[in-house]
Design a protein around this nucleic acid. Sequence first.
DNA 1: AAATAAATTTAGTCAAATCTAAAAAATTAA
DNA 2: TTAATTTTTTAGATTTGACTAAATTTATTT
Lengths: 220, 220
Amino acid sequence: MNYSVSEENYIKTIFHLQKKEGTVTTNELAGELKTRPASVTDMMKKLKAKKLLHYQPYQGFRLNNDGTKVALAIIRRHRLWEYFLAEKLKFTWDEVHEVAEELEHVSNKKLIDKLDAFLGYPKNDPHGDPIPDANGKIDTGKKIRLPEIPLHTPCIVSGVSNQSGEILELLEHKKIRIGTRLEIRKKFDFDESLEIKSGKQTITTISRQLAENILITHEA
Amino acid sequence: MNYSVSEENYIKTIFHLQKKEGTVTTNELAGELKTRPASVTDMMKKLKAKKLLHYQPYQGFRLNNDGTKVALAIIRRHRLWEYFLAEKLKFTWDEVHEVAEELEHVSNKKLIDKLDAFLGYPKNDPHGDPIPDANGKIDTGKKIRLPEIPLHTPCIVSGVSNQSGEILELLEHKKIRIGTRLEIRKKFDFDESLEIKSGKQTITTISRQLAENILITHEA
DNA sequence: AAATAAATTTAGTCAAATCTAAAAAATTAA
DNA sequence: TTAATTTTTTAGATTTGACTAAATTTATTT
């Protein structure tokens, strides 16, 4: 029921990798975790013994139901802390991930559920990724991006899908943050740039690349 | 510059133990950490090699300057998280210690300084113990307890020095929490009980034992 | 389909942090 | 001041998670 930091990092990483392909290979995992293939094999035997994943030598691995539950609990912790760091402690979007990597391993269930309540049960972390609820349910519906919103429809920024310092700088400059109310005023076909009204009054123009990275909630 | 969870627990415990006596013995430390004397000796060699404490075989040990700095950083983290848990997440006073024992080992300096700012630079944790500042300065002045406050002098509850569930239950019942404004109305010599006005209007009587455990700030 | 290359696993080490059992030092008591 | 007791340290083993190097399995070429 309780896993080491190392075990948790393996489980979490397998979860992320297997979303793309059905199964994860030894080398992939070693690359992602910056460890050696031999170490991965060792850990896979251990996690198999703990019945968290399917694993046959040379065949790759895949989390089973129990393993997925564990992964979702870790991801819930990670994303709630990210939200807390950005929203309450005023960390910038590109700083939260690193700190959350440490906080996610504090696995007191009551702590996390109370943190969730304190934050107002947020649905997405600052990068727009969905936060699993206390039962491990996660919103798998794909993200809505700004270009998909119709003209003159007020909406609210719920995250960005790109965490680079550059995009942050630009968004900061344009005063676009999580919770900012936006409305598209005009779409220019030539370069697909958008003229938007943001916050109270500000009118500005943003590029297609930028708009593609702005995630939106409808509830507005 | 970075210490393992285990090393941190040893350092922190030595700090607390040596406050009472000048020096700490192997058995004392083993008892406190629920480990074996042989393990303590091993760790003392390691911490001596890292120049965090004075240690001569059979002579006990004592943190040096560097070790004390490390201890104060850990205690700062612990107490800030305790404050956060009680104040923001609504944990009760008797629950915060256990959770903070885990959170204290996340040693990102920026995280802790931002947390401190978010909390409004609190001076004491929910048990009334002083919180070291970002430079490791700690208020060593002794705590003021409710019986020391003169009659009709408004003051504010800053903590309790006893963390039992029983005292919590009583304080909860009387609606006395951190931040509650109190004023002593009458002191009864017979049993040293106090009649106090708490919060807006409530008048109630509390025993000497209870009053002794209520810590007070003057700023009110 | 054999030969080569790549991926994976096995075997054997290592460091950190713990333990038990035995030895050594310090303390207390007779 | 010896003897007995307690405290502390040493020596050797164990567990976890990592590593290197060698062996094995799978995949890719020619």
